[in-house]
Simulated assay, not measured.
Amino acid sequence: MFFRPAPEFSILMVCMGNICRSPTAEGVLRHKLRQAGLHKRVLVDSAGTIASHAGEAPDPRAQSHALRRGYELADLRARQVQPADFMRFDWLLAMDHDNLAWLRQACTPEHQGKLKRLLEFAPQLGRDDVPDPYYGGPAGFEAVLDLVETACDELVRRLQAEFS
C-alpha cells in the first residue's frame, strides 16, 4: 500500500451550479499550483450551492475556453457543497456575493472565518464578483478566465509565502 501525505492546505471554489465559474477556478488553480510545485501540498476542489447539476461535467463552453488556455476541466464533476466541507476545507472561496451569502447561512459560526470571495485575493481588479457567464456569449467565459487567472496567481503567491 502506497502512503500519500495529506495536503497541508485545502481550498474549495464555490459558485451556484458548479459547472462554469467554480470548476474553471479549480482547474486554473490546480494548474498554477502544479507549475509552482505546490500541487502536493494544496488540495483544490469545487462545488455549487445548488444540486441541480450534480454529476455533470463543466459546461462545454467553459471547458473549451479553458482548454485554449491550457486548463483541462473534462474530468471534473459538479457537486453541491456539503456540511462536512466547512470542516474539511481551510478556505471556501465564493465567486460572488450571492454564493458567499449562501455559504454564510449554511456555515456554523466556528467556520465563518474560512469564507471569502475569490476576488478578495485580487483587489487590484477593482471587482468583487466573478460574473456568471452561463447565459452570455464567449466573451463572458473569457472574462471569467481573466479574473480567475489573476486571483489564482495571487493565491499561489500567498501560498508560496506561507510555505516558505
Results as ranks from 00 to 15, higher is better:
29 L>I: 06
100 L>G: 09
121 F>H: 07
68 R>M: 15
32 K>E: 05
150 T>F: 01
114 K>C: 08
54 A>T: 08
117 R>F: 12
111 H>M: 03
1 M>V: 13
23 P>W: 10
52 S>H: 15
153 D>W: 01
111 H>F: 15
149 E>R: 03
57 A>S: 14
155 L>C: 07
86 F>W: 05
145 L>D: 04
93 L>S: 05
119 L>E: 09
84 A>W: 10
109 P>D: 10
18 N>A: 01
118 L>N: 02
37 G>Q: 02
146 D>R: 15
163 F>K: 12
83 P>G: 02
147 L>G: 10
154 E>G: 11
18 N>R: 12
141 F>E: 05
76 L>I: 13
67 L>W: 14
50 I>S: 15
33 L>Q: 00
102 W>L: 09
120 E>F: 00
61 R>A: 02
80 Q>C: 09
129 D>R: 10
24 T>W: 07
103 L>G: 07
142 E>C: 13
145 L>M: 10
7 P>T: 08
44 V>P: 04
159 L>R: 07
83 P>H: 08
70 G>K: 09
19 I>Y: 10
115 L>H: 11
112 Q>K: 09
150 T>V: 14
72 E>K: 04
81 V>G: 01
40 K>E: 09
112 Q>G: 10
20 C>V: 01
132 D>W: 05
18 N>E: 09
27 G>C: 08
83 P>E: 04
140 G>I: 12
20 C>I: 08
52 S>L: 14
43 L>Y: 00
23 P>M: 10
